[in-house]
């Protein structure tokens, strides 16, 4: 058992292992939204946590209140100075996050099996992980910051490339019947996931 004592946070990896099954689609949307919310706030405050290139489900933390944060990898922290400079770009973090979320949806499936995802969620992951088939006009680049003059409404209607945490959040919000409900709704989904997992954890600890 990796987990001991009462906890305020569970990693996505803990959750997958405890249930021994994949997360559901609603949880995937919620973790994406909440995690990108955290990351965009971190960036806005100008105090980015150092983030190595390859993230894992162990670094995604779900908190009791439904917040989702991204923890830096422990071992690399000793290398302080160097890591600050080698931290990932926003698109790289989004790509890693998309891959982690896909793997959480795919958890426990055999190599020759594939889960049928709803088209909007598959599209979100495709965009996040940057695996969308190029259709000619797709010139995204890691360092390219062509933000500038984008029409807000147009962007909301169809996002063909994700460049920021805010883009991910917009897509997650657009998935809901009422977009303005997104923060409350997704927080509640994550809070429930945490609570249910803790319940299961407590139960399993007792019978052990």
């Amino acid at each position: 058992g990796e987990a001991e004592g009462p906890r305020d946070a569970l990693s996505l990896e803990d959750i997958l292992r405890l249930y021994n099954q994949p997360i559901n689609e609603e949880q995937a949307w919620a973790v994406c939204f909440q995690c990108c919310g955290f990351l965009s706030t971190e960036d806005a405050r100008g105090r980015r946590a150092p983030r190595p290139r390859a993230l894992s489900a162990a670094q995604i933390r779900l908190w009791r209140d439904g917040a989702v944060t991204l923890a830096p990898t422990g071992e690399s922290l000793h290398d302080a100075g160097k890591l600050e400079y080698s931290r990932s770009t926003e698109t790289e973090v989004i790509e890693s996050l998309g891959i982690i979320i896909y793997k959480a949806l795919d958890y426990g499936l055999k190599e020759n099996e594939e889960r049928e995802l709803s088209p909007p969620l598959e599209k979100l992951i495709d965009l996040m992980a940057n695996t969308v088939e190029a259709d000619g006009s797709n010139d995204e680049g890691y360092e390219a910051a062509n933000e500038g003059m984008e029409d807000e409404d147009d962007e909301k209607r169809k996002i063909s490339a994700i460049r920021s945490y805010r883009d991910v959040m917009k897509l997650c919000a657009a998935h809901l019947p009422t977009e303005s409900e997104a923060p409350n709704h997704y927080q509640a989904v994550c809070r429930a996931l945490f609570a249910e997992t803790m319940e299961l954890y407590t139960f399993l600890t007792k019978i052990k």
């Binding site: 997360i23 891959i99 594939e114 695996t131």
Partner: peptide, 24 residues
């Protein structure tokens, strides 16, 4: 409280699983 059910299909070469695998 149960998790929603999901359908499993055979892995497709052009599917998202294959594309994600290539990234990792």
């Amino acid at each position: 409280k149960g998790k929603s059910l999901y359908k499993i299909k055979p892995r497709h070469d052009s599917g998202i699983k294959a594309k994600i695998s290539m990234k990792t």
